[in-house]
């Protein structure tokens, strides 16, 4: 693993007490700098759509186009009633867009912030949280599709929907760890963003976003129960559709979150100071 550090300093050593202290301070100061990460997140979105007439509502419009076109084609393909399939697709795609958006953006979090990191002693966590902020703003734009689709197809929301809130909270916590790991490694290894992109593509197809686990039968167990993407998708999407997620999904999501932090925290503590050297 010496290759990770780049400098011939021998084996990968466990973070020292000082490393841990500085990493903890980085994260606390990063979280407290909410004005910076909200402003950066908002500016990211604002800048992307600045010169277009529809502005950031292109986010909503794109999602509407996708749900409408894919909804029609796949309901025919899967032989499913459209009033049943389109609401499912709208909810799943909204949540999946959040997950995949965070993973995609995580690969460039520090590289994109290079000019800041090289000049000032800013907490690195700011740029991790910025990715989350940006994608939550996108979620805010996409989520308006859901009530519209429900209205159009006569789906009545149930009180179970509030379960989506703790689900989303857990997803965001896990996303922090994912972004920390991915942004750090992607700064060091510049081929990794492409690899992550490809894995994400595969994850989209093996996760029940476009399809229902029932359609696959027995083997769905492996794709749904063991797949962390499916777990995080279900703990947010299922309640919105009026289903209580099964305990297995929560267990998977919780365990995945713990594992992610067990990797992210030592990795960040050890290499936090090296990030700026890799830019």
């Amino acid at each position: 693993m010496a290759a990770l550090d780049g400098v011939a300093m021998g084996a990968l050593v466990w973070p020292t007490k000082r490393d841990w202290r500085l990493a903890a301070s980085d994260m606390v100061r990063g979280l407290l700098a909410w004005e910076i990460w909200t402003l950066l997140g908002v500016s990211d979105i604002r800048q992307r759509y600045k010169r277009s007439r529809l502005g950031q509502f292109w986010i909503t419009a794109s999602m509407a186009f996708f749900v409408a076109s894919t909804g029609v084609v796949y309901s025919l393909l899967f032989n499913q009633p459209i009033y049943d399939y389109v609401p499912l697709l709208a909810v799943n795609m909204t949540v999946w867009t959040l997950i995949s958006g965070i993973v995609t953006d995580s690969t460039t979090a520090f590289v994109q912030a290079g000019m800041y990191l090289r000049q000032d002693a800013l907490p690195k966590a700011i740029f991790v949280i910025r990715v989350l902020t940006r994608n939550l703003i996108i979620l805010g734009h996409n989520i308006v599709i859901i009530p519209l689709v429900f209205l159009a197809f006569g789906v009545v929301p149930t009180p179970v929907a509030v379960l989506a809130i703790p689900g989303l909270a857990l997803l965001i916590v896990a996303a922090f760890a994912v972004t920390l790991i991915s942004s750090l490694l992607c700064t060091r290894f510049r081929d990794l963003p492409q690899i992550v992109q490809n894995l994400l593509q595969i994850a989209f197809f093996v996760t029940p976003v476009l399809w229902r686990p029932e359609q696959i039968g027995e083997s769905a167990f492996y794709l749904v129960a063991l797949n962390p993407f499916a777990a995080f998708l279900r703990i947010v999407a299922d309640p919105l559709r009026g289903q209580v997620p099964d305990a297995l999904a929560y267990a998977n999501a919780l365990l995945s979150t713990l594992i992610l932090f067990a990797i992210a925290l030592p990795l960040f503590a050890r290499f936090r100071a090296r990030i700026v050297y890799w830019l």
């Binding site: 800048q47 000032d120 002693a121």
Partner: peptide
Amino acid sequence: GAYEPSTGTAEISGTVSSLLEITMGMDPEL
């Protein structure tokens, strides 16, 4: 404080104003 030495230490106390790249973070579209 942007670069932490790869070996040795740097202790900086006090607030820092670094005018090294003053256009840092400015966005042409805004």
